[in-house]
C-alpha cells in the first residue's frame, strides 16, 4: 500500500529525515514510534506533501513524491494531524461535510453512522466544533478524515493528552477502521495502544528507522526500548 524508501527532508538547513525506509501493507495497522523530536511528524507531513520530499514514496504503486497534498488525498491517503485542526467556527456536521471529497459517491462511512458510533458527536451535531472537549475533537478529526473514504490513514499521536477511557475509544475506532480494510499508520510516543493493536512496529531515532518488529519482538528487546523509547 505505502512504500517509503530512502526518504530525506529538510527544514531550512537542518537535515531532519536522513533516509527513512518503511512500508505499510493493505489492511495492516503499523506503528511508528519514537521519542520527542526524532522526526515522526515530519515523516507523515513529508509523505503528505506538506514538507518537500527527497527520495521515493510509493502509494498503491504510484510515485507520489512531489505531488500536491490534495492530489495525494484524492488517491486515497488520509491524514489526521497532531494539532487536531478542527474548524472551531464550523459545526460538527459541517466539519464532517468538509471531509467528503465529493457528494456523488458513497464511501465506506456515512455521517449517521459516525453519529451512531460516537453519540457524543451526534448530540452535538449542530454545535460549533470549538466547544468540544479534547477527546471529542480528536474523534471528530478522525471521523472527518474517514468521510473522505481513504484506503489508508496516517494518524499523528491521537491519544496525546486524553483520558484512559477515551484512549480506549480511540483504539476501538482504529480497529474498526482496520476491519473495513483501511490500512493505518499510527504515530505514537507511548507504547500503550500501539502494542495492543499493531501488526508491526517501527521505532525511529534521529531521522532514521532504528528498529522493525512486532509487539512481541519489541517487548523482548529491552536494549532497544531503553535507548529509543521512553519506558
Amino acid at each position: 500500500m505505502l512504500e517509503v524508501s530512502n526518504l530525506h527532508a529538510y527544514y531550512g538547513k537542518s537535515h531532519i529525515l536522513q533516509g527513512v525506509n518503511f512500508n505499510v501493507q493493505k489492511g495492516e495497522i503499523v506503528s511508528l514510534l519514537g521519542r520527542n523530536g526524532v522526526g515522526r511528524s515530519t515523516t507523515v507531513k513529508t509523505i503528505m506533501g506538506e514538507v518537500a520530499p527527497q527520495g521515493s514514496i510509493k502509494f498503491k504503486g504510484l510515485e507520489i513524491a512531489g505531488k500536491e497534498s490534495f492530489e495525494i488525498a484524492h488517491l486515497g491517503l488520509g491524514y489526521v494531524p497532531e494539532n487536531r485542526d478542527i474548524f472551531p467556527s464550523l459545526t460538527v456536521r459541517q466539519n464532517l461535510i468538509l471531509g467528503m471529497k465529493s457528494t456523488q459517491t458513497q464511501g465506506r462511512w456515512t455521517i449517521d453512522e459516525m453519529f451512531r458510533m460516537f453519540p457524543n458527536l451526534g448530540e452535538r451535531a449542530d454545535v460549533e466544533g470549538g466547544v468540544l472537549s479534547g477527546g471529542e475533537q480528536q474523534m471528530l478529526c478522525m471521523c472527518r478524515t474517514l468521510m473522505g473514504d481513504p484506503d489508508m490513514i496516517m494518524i499523528d499521536e491521537p491519544t496525546e493528552g486524553l483520558a484512559p477511557k477515551i484512549v480506549e475509544q480511540v483504539a476501538n475506532l482504529l480497529q474498526e477502521i482496520a476491519r473495513r480494510g483501511v490500512a493505518i499508520l499510527l504515530v505514537e510516543q507511548k507504547l500503550s495502544i500501539a502494542l495492543k493493536i499493531s501488526h508491526r512496529l517501527y521505532v525511529m531515532g534521529h531521522g532514521k528507522i532504528v528498529y522493525e518488529g512486532t509487539a512481541d519482538s519489541l517487548m523482548g528487546e529491552d536494549a532497544v526500548r531503553a535507548e529509543w523509547l521512553e519506558v
Binding site: S69, F70, H74, L98, K101
Partner: peptide, 20 residues
C-alpha cells in the same frame, strides 16, 4: 464551508483533498 475553512486552515483543507 470549504471556502470558510480554506481561508483559516489552508493546509488542513488541502489534506482533506480540496484543491486550495
Amino acid at each position: 464551508i470549504i471556502i470558510q475553512a480554506a481561508i483559516t486552515h489552508p493546509n488542513t483543507v488541502a489534506n482533506l483533498g480540496h484543491n486550495v
